[in-house]
Each structure stands twice: as C-alpha cells, then as structure tokens.
C-alpha cells in the first residue's frame, strides 16, 4: 500500500500523544507538577498535530466534519467521534493542571479511557480490512495500543525525572521505568509476532480465485488493461519498502526498541537530571522507530487488487 506520510505521521504522533494522556489521566504522572503541565501541553500538541495531519491526504478536507456521522458502521468515523469526545475530559484535565496546578482525577480517568478507545479505533480501521491479510489481525490492535503506551510512558518518565531533579528527596518516579520497559517489550513482542504472521500467512485469495479461471489450470496475467500506472497500482502496488524491508526493520528495532531500552536501564542508576535528558531523547528515538515501523506497516502490505495485476497471492 502506498504510505501516505500524513497517515503515518498521524498514527505515530497521535498514538504517542494518547499514550501520554493515559499515563497522565490515571495519575502515573502528577498533573499538578511542572512535568505534568508540560506533559498535558505535549499530549495535546501531539494529538492535535496528528489529527490535523490526517486531513492533509483528503481530497476535500473542508468536508471532514461529515466524517463524524457514520459511527454506526465505520471505524474511521468512530475514531473521529472518539477523538473529538476525548478532547473534552482531556482539555478539562489540562485546564486543571495548567491553570489550577491540580490533578482533576475524574476528568483524567475519562480522558485515559477515551484515549485508549481512540487508538483502538485507529487500529481497527486497518485491522478490519479483509483485503490486506497482514493487517487483518488482533495483533495490529495490540501493536498500536502498546506502542502508544510505551511512547507515553517514556515521555512521562522523562518529565517525572525532571520534576524529581527539582525535588531531590522524591525518588518515586523511578517506578515508571519498569512500566515503560514492560510496555516497550510488550509492543515489540506483539510486532515480532505480527511480522512472523505476515511472513507465514497468506490471504485465501489468489489470482485463480480473483479471476475464477482456476479450473483451466494455472492463471497468468497476459496483458494489463493499461500500459502506465493508475490510481490502483500506485495506491495498492507500492514496492519500494518490500525491497528494503529487512534493513528498515533493523532500523525500526534499533531506534524503537534497543536505544530506548538501554536508556531505561541506564536511567535506573543515574541522577534525576541526567535521567530526564536521557529519557526524553529515548522518547524521540522511540517515535522515530515507530515512524519507520508505521511506514513499513503500510508499504509492505499486499492488497488483493494486485492479484488482477499479476500477483499470484496476496
């Protein structure tokens, strides 16, 4: 599938933003502290930037509000509705944090629930498509949720370490580190299983079932309907990433898993101020890893349409 940058940026940025909103909402990062205040600003910025970027690939962004109407059947619509609804408690919690230096727990919990539900819907947009076998799996949902949470926990632990650097007696923030580690490892275990499944399982659809000519024997494409590319072959027949998939997977693992994990382990043993700097860099590295992973998620996906253009399996 063609990897539209706006969609990759949207799912990666908003995923991390919603992850941070969950951590703040359930009180793992104190919303009343400076770190919490910065956290709310970052979460809102990441989510808003993501949502804004998701409208860039639309043919008619001015009609985007119509996308909130079909939540009964469409995961994309549900995602939009939940994203808007989540802004209410999230905005309220941010208001309490920024202007009253308070942690308004009920709003926070609602925001956390809304954030998880929104990321779930984002993942279901792809996981519900039968046409792309690699996506149509619960693992897709697990990866989206765990990567979001891991990114949020990395950011939150950096911000909490910053708070702690200013109040040296308080070392409770270090409790976030094992949580971040668990989410990080969980996310990549899910992704490893996802990759393994993508390599082993093929769609039940073949060039024979697509044409219905299997009873005559093996089916081969003799002539395409057109010489040049068209919307379908550009959109569903993207090949660049598949060629470099192994290299790109290694890069995603390096930035998304190895560097943040090493940072988390080192942060256990160094002073708060250094830990804060290290962990915030680890969060950026994780975001870069997720961006590469998300690019592969789209670019490696095989769509059944390409069976009509000569692919033997999807």
């Amino acid at each position: 599938m063609h990897p539209a940058f706006s969609v990759i940026a949207f799912t990666s940025l908003s995923g991390m933003g919603y992850g941070l909103a969950v951590v703040l909402g359930v009180g793992l990062l104190n919303g009343a502290s400076l770190g919490g205040q910065i956290g709310y600003v970052i979460a809102l910025l990441l989510i808003s930037a993501g949502l804004a970027s998701s409208t860039f690939h639309l043919g008619h962004p001015e009609r985007a509000v119509l996308a909130l109407t079909q939540w009964r059947s469409s995961w994309l619509s549900r995602e939009g509705v939940l994203a808007i609804i989540t802004f209410l408690p999230l905005g309220l919690a941010a208001l309490g944090s920024l202007f009253f230096a308070a942690d308004w727990q009920p709003a926070g919990w609602l925001a956390a629930a809304g954030a998880l539900a929104t990321v779930y819907c984002t993942a279901m947009i792809y996981a519900s498509l039968k046409t792309v076998q690699q996506w149509a799996s619960g693992l897709t949902v697990a990866v989206y949720l765990l990567f979001g949470l891991a990114g949020g926990l990395l950011l939150a632990s950096g911000l909490a370490a910053m708070d702690a650097a200013m109040v040296p007696a308080d070392e409770s923030w270090r409790g976030l580190l094992p949580l971040a580690l668990v989410a990080l490892l969980g996310g990549w275990v899910a992704k490893a299983l996802w990759w393994r499944r993508a390599g082993q399982e093929h769609s039940a659809s073949t060039i024979e079932s697509a044409t219905g000519l299997g009873h005559l024997g093996k089916v081969r494409l003799l002539e395409r309907p057109h010489i040049e590319e068209n919307y379908l072959t550009r959109e569903m027949g993207f090949r660049v990433a598949r060629k470099h998939a192994v290299k790109l997977r290694r890069m995603a693992l390096l930035f998304g898993l190895v560097l943040p994990m090493v940072a988390l382990l080192i942060a256990l043993f160094i002073p708060d101020g250094f830990a804060a700097v290290l962990l915030l860099h680890a969060a950026l590295s994780h975001l870069l890893g997720v961006l590469i992973e998300r690019w592969l998620f789209f670019a490696e996906a095989r769509h059944t349409v390409m069976l009509y253009y000569g692919d033997e399996r999807a």
Partner: peptide, 24 residues
C-alpha cells in the same frame, strides 16, 4: 459528501473504485 479519504478503495478487494485526482 465524499471527502476523498480513499478508504473505500482500500476496502474493495476488486479495485472497482478509483479516485479522481482532479476532483478529489
């Protein structure tokens, strides 16, 4: 009402839908 998101073309296994690039 179409916003030109392209999701329907992704959902169709047959490639029956094509985005009009000029009209979006």
């Amino acid at each position: 009402r179409c916003i030109g998101c392209g999701l329907c073309a992704w959902a169709c296994p047959y490639g029956a839908r094509e985005m009009d690039v000029a009209e979006g």
